[in-house]
């Protein structure tokens, strides 16, 4: 039995455990599914008229953004889940078993990836119901969902690091909220960067959320994607390359 295969098997076992947890307490999914619906109502119906003079055009612009917003909100759960695990005795059980230490982390991320994809499908379904139209095709739409989920996974690794680094659950939640706010709002989720002042535009244009959102917009309603897709993938790779090892190191360090 090679180490890699054992790691995969153990990660799957932990992922199953985390998904069974969700099955037993579906309320966990509420935040990730209801938040985007609320934001759609606020931005499309309350502010849409003021932002772009009507709902019809803005809807096509906004809904890919709401998908991005969904993954950023959903990523907080990774940090909270790991933090809770450490607060209970269950981590002692895991750490006294002959499994790779990273299996608990990769298992968690794997389960969260399933959660992210599910969230994306729910939001996309909701968007279609209220009148959003995919103007490209099935394959580009699948690509959009996958890219969003991949970005979500990168965010989950950061959340995992925060959840392990910080002991208090409240602080984990607060920090998650704090760093995700500029990532969500100083982006092209709700309005194009070109409408913003120069100093802000500099940030918005390099914000990975903007790059991912713009790519998905292209994939769903048409338009150029090559430039933003390259930037988005680069960001995702860099985030995972930096924060996955940091999270694993933090996991090992916890007494």
């Amino acid at each position: 039995m090679t180490g890699q295969r054992a790691l995969a098997r153990h990660s799957l076992a932990v992922a199953r455990r985390n998904l069974v947890q969700v099955k037993n307490d579906p309320g966990q999914l509420l935040a990730a599914t209801l938040t985007p619906v609320l934001f759609t109502v606020v931005f499309l119906y309350v502010l849409g008229g003021a932002i772009s003079g009507g709902q019809a055009g803005y809807q096509q612009y906004l809904m890919p953004g709401i998908m991005a917003q969904t993954v950023t909100v959903a990523s907080i759960a990774t940090g909270i889940g790991l933090n809770l695990d450490f607060g209970s005795g269950v981590m002692d059980r895991f750490r006294s078993l002959p499994i790779a230490r990273s299996a608990v982390l990769t298992g968690r991320i794997l389960a969260d990836a399933c959660r992210l994809v599910l969230g994306q499908l729910v939001v996309l379904g909701f968007a279609l119901v209220i009148g959003f139209r995919v103007q490209t095709g099935v394959l580009p739409a699948v690509g959009a969902v996958l890219l969003m989920s991949l970005y979500g996974i990168a965010l989950c690794w950061i959340a995992a690091y925060v959840g392990l680094r910080i002991r208090s659950m409240q602080t984990v939640q607060t920090i998650g909220f704090l760093w995700l706010t500029p990532l969500q709002f100083a982006s092209s989720i709700f309005a194009p960067a070109s409408t913003m002042p120069d100093w802000l535009r500099v940030f918005v244009e390099v914000n990975p959320t903007s790059l991912v959102t713009d790519t998905c917009r292209g994939l769903l309603i048409g338009g150029p994607v090559a430039g933003s897709a390259a930037g988005a993938l680069l960001w995702i790779a860099a985030m995972i390359a930096v924060f996955a090892p940091l999270a694993v190191r933090e996991y090992r360090r916890r007494p």
Binding site: V20, N24, V90, I99
Partner: peptide
Amino acid sequence: SVDENISGWENLYLVGRLT
């Protein structure tokens, strides 16, 4: 040190798979 959020059976099955 049991997982409060999965059933008793799932707890034992999980440890079985991890061993």
